[in-house]
Design a protein around this nucleic acid. Structure first.
Length: 423
RNA sequence: GGAGGGGUCGGAUAGUGGUUAUUCCACAGGUUUGCUAAACCUGCGUCCUUUACUGGACUCGUGAGUUCAAAUCUCACCCCCUCCGCCA
């Protein structure tokens, strides 16, 4: 959510942001129109209320008159305000100047490439045809997709044996890494209220991708399954006024994540690259309202993710998302894509964003500065590690000629093995 | 699921239909003062209006209702605490 005063004064700029992001820009004009009506009505209502407040008990007749007048106008005001709030939620965050304008992933910019892709079948390589993670997982009894679908339906999967240890090890490794960097570990609730998803900006835009529980009656107490720990962590401080001296606040959230993946029905149907439920450690930062500081955090959060990929020795590249490929709330966003030989391409494994005030205005999270001013905080989030997607990269990059998979050094203590072989 | 108690500013707290919602702590600014401390004064949330000064409205868990007037009365809902039941 943006400041209505800002929208009023920068209509063209806000409309351009929506257009660049490829979403509907008409709400901008609508919200300005609604705001105008709202203020007109508000002035009338407040004038009448002011009169009413002046009246003493001697002038009850006049009071009755005012009551009738107010009853005529107030419902209109309430209606306009409700509509105004609704349309306000459809105004996107404005991309930073450094963000390239573009339509889709083709317009994203590579800002960094790290690591050497493994050479399997090439001339100078090890001389074998690499397998993908599905084949590897099946032959080493790490992955059972067939029974996963039998039990859970489309995109269901069982992780087995060392894959279980590896996934849990990855979570623990990432959590420990972030604790080292000063993050507070959190396990948040993933069944959340509607407003929690509005606060992050997942609603209204991403509603279709979120599972809804069925335990509500007649639309009361709607609950949803959050797709990332970012959702509950952002609302952890909702409606609170923090103290500047307590900032920045760093949270490392562990959770299962639930995604319907509607609109992706035909995409990535093979294996466990795109699944309905997975585990993730997420980084969330709450800092001062200062673009310079939040930009620094964006780089730091990215460097933490990169550090982990480097320790896992997985080749990756860092992409700056263009306007058309970033989410509605975001100001600036990097994706990190990890090399996956089975796909013969890089696949997204991390997503690092500055949200600025967008989420803190929705969630009403402020802080008191040293000068006793009250401001909205800035919020950022980035993936630390998500699994099983990262297992895809590990299996495929670490496979050997004989069909075995080496265990990345940093994970060996969790798996208790250096190599996974056929039983 | 059942019974009872509660929700007032960042924290604590007073307030059973009528001026401006009380007080304390914390915090910020100011005055005084060799320094620090202390004392005192002012401020401390949201919105509207104004270039500004200012003026006004709202804010007592949420929403609706009764009333000229609601923190206070009525109804519904949410949350917290205590106890009982069920349960991994």
């Amino acid at each position: 959510m943006l400041d209505i005063k800002f929208i009023r004064e920068n209509q063209k700029l806000v409309e351009k942001a929506a257009k660049d992001k490829g979403i509907d820009y008409k709400p901008v004009a609508q919200v300005i129109e609604l705001d105008k009506k709202r203020r007109e009505l508000l002035a009338k209502v407040e004038g009448l209320r002011a009169l009413r407040n002046k009246i003493t008990r001697n002038d009850i007749e006049k009071g009755k008159e005012i009551k009738v007048k107010l009853k005529k106008i107030e419902p209109g005001l309430r209606k306009i305000e409700a509509e105004f709030k609704k349309v306000m939620l459809m105004i996107p965050g404005i991309p930073d100047k450094s963000v390239p304008v573009g339509k889709n992933e083709e317009d994203n910019k590579v800002v960094k490439t790290w690591g050497k892709k493994p050479e399997f079948s090439t001339k100078g390589g090890q001389g074998f045809k690499p397998k993908d993670h599905v084949e590897l997982g099946k032959s080493l009894d790490l992955l059972d997709l067939k029974r996963g679908v039998k039990v859970g339906g489309f995109r269901g999967y069982f992780l087995k044996n060392e894959a279980v240890l590896m996934q849990m090890g990855i979570m623990q490794y990432a959590m420990n890494k972030l604790i080292e960097k000063g993050f507070k570990p959190m396990i948040p609730p993933m069944i959340v209220k509607k407003e929690t998803l509005i606060n992050t900006g997942h609603f209204p835009w991403g509603k279709a991708d979120v599972y809804k529980t069925s335990d509500d009656e007649a639309g009361q107490n709607e609950r949803f399954l959050a797709g990332t720990a970012e959702v509950p962590l952002v609302s952890y401080h909702a409606n609170e006024t923090l103290n500047e001296k307590d900032l920045p606040i760093l949270y490392a959230g562990f959770s299962s994540c639930y995604r319907r993946e509607v609109g992706n029905y035909g995409r990535d149907t093979k294996g466990v690259y795109r699944v309905h439920e997975f585990m993730k450690i997420e980084q969330v930062v709450i800092c001062k309202n200062d673009m310079k500081e939040s930009s620094e955090w964006l780089e730091k959060l990215s460097s933490y993710s990169e550090e982990m990929l480097q320790e896992l020795k997985l080749p990756y590249r860092k992409m700056m998302m263009c306007t058309g490929d970033m989410g509605e709330p975001q100001i600036k966003k990097y994706d990190i894509e990890t090399w996956m030989p089975g796909r013969n391409s890089y696949g997204e494994t991390m997503s690092d964003s500055i949200m600025g005030e967008f989420q803190s205005r929705r969630a009403n999270i402020k802080y008191r500065t040293k000068n006793n001013e009250v401001k909205f905080v800035h919020i950022l989030n980035n993936t630390a590690l998500a699994s099983p997607r990262i297992l895809v990269a590990i299996f495929e990059n670490y496979q050997q000629k004989d069909g075995s998979i080496k265990v990345p050094e940093v994970l060996q203590k969790y798996v208790n093995k250096k190599i996974l072989v056929k039983k």
